[in-house]
Simulated assay, not measured.
Amino acid sequence: MEPLIALITGFLVAGLLGLLGVDALDDWQVALRVGLACMFLLTAFAHFQPRLRAELIDMVPPELPRPDLLVTLTGVLELAGAVGVLIPATARLAAACLIPLMIVMYAANVSAARRHVAQGDPIGPRTALQVVFIAAAALTLV
């Protein structure tokens, strides 16, 4: 739920600043990219915070090698995506790259739910959230 709150809050704050005269934020897609950046910064930091990192490592499907390395890699990719969506020259590419990343990482959520590991949203609500996150990234591409 926290990533959704970060997405919505970032979007609303950026949109409000745009309405108040901050020209760089006076566009709903730019405000949405700010929301995405907030969300991905939050989720990326979870990959490196020790307690949350351990939960994420447990979520990696057991047939994949080096779950610790995969968690680090996805965290770095999330950080890069968060920065990338804020830079006009890379925003579209970053958003386009974040979509398949979210799809791949969703597989870990499904695996974790099936194996009853890690805490988090049940698979139904998690699926709905993932659709919202992917839709938000896709909307920045139009």
Rank of each mutant, 00 (worst) to 15 (best):
L32N: 03
V76T: 12
V104K: 02
L17A: 15
V131N: 06
C97D: 10
L16E: 07
Q130P: 04
G35H: 07
P3C: 04
P88Q: 08
L56D: 06
L98K: 07
A24Y: 11
L77G: 07
V85C: 01
R114K: 09
G120M: 10
T127Q: 04
V110K: 00
T127R: 00
P50T: 05
A44Y: 11
L56A: 01
L52H: 12
H47K: 05
L139N: 10
D27H: 08
L93I: 13
L12Y: 10
L93F: 12
M59T: 01
E2P: 14
G120C: 01
P65C: 00
A94P: 08
H47E: 01
L93Y: 08
G18D: 06
L77H: 08
L4I: 11
D23M: 04
R115P: 00
L141S: 06
A91C: 03
I57H: 00
V142K: 12
G81S: 12
G120V: 06
W28A: 05
L56H: 09
L101H: 02
V85M: 02
M39A: 13
A136E: 10
L41R: 05
E78T: 01
E63F: 14
A31M: 10
A82E: 05
D27Q: 03
P100N: 10
M102F: 15
G10L: 06
V30I: 06
